[in-house]
Design a protein around this nucleic acid. Structure first.
Length: 134
DNA sequence: ATTCTAACA
DNA sequence: TGTTAGTA
């Protein structure tokens, strides 16, 4: 579909993305280093972000705000094609696969990763490292 | 004026 | 992550 083309079309420069996502240039570049986004470049090496990139940045921001660190965020965003994990989560909840929306799956994955205790943020005080979602 | 990379009194 | 230096 042509919608995919538009979403991946290189359009906005750093300054615009900073305002749209409320993220600093430092953070945006850092997330790119971790392969979370792959913005195009102009002839002058300036980044051009797509709508898809902005969606990804907002997801990264949400995940981070909820207490998941880079390792956890990468596990989630870079493994969207990992149907095994998704299936397990779906079954564990005793619900049919196609009855879940992507948002529900993300929520369950977050809870699983957090409760597993392997992807806690290390920059929070002891009392703030363990948070659950309801 | 804006963005980029590299680096850290 | 912030911030700053020196560019393009």
């Amino acid at each position: 579909m042509s919608n995919k083309i538009r979403r991946s079309m290189p359009l906005f420069p750093m300054g615009t993305v900073m305002k749209l996502t409320e993220l600093s240039a430092r953070q945006i570049r850092y997330y790119e280093e971790h392969q979370l986004i792959r913005p195009e470049r102009t002839e002058g090496n300036r980044r051009l972000f797509s709508l898809y990139d902005i969606d990804r940045l907002l997801e990264v921001k949400d995940l981070l705000d909820e207490g998941i660190n880079m390792a956890g965020v990468k596990k989630i965003l870079l493994q969207e094609e990992n149907k095994e994990v998704h299936s397990n989560v779906k079954e564990a909840a005793g619900k049919d696969k196609k009855d879940f929306t992507n948002e529900e799956v993300r929520k369950l994955l977050r809870k699983e990763l957090i409760n597993a205790g392997r992807f806690h943020r290390d920059d929070l005080p002891p009392g703030e490292r363990y948070r659950y979602f309801h």
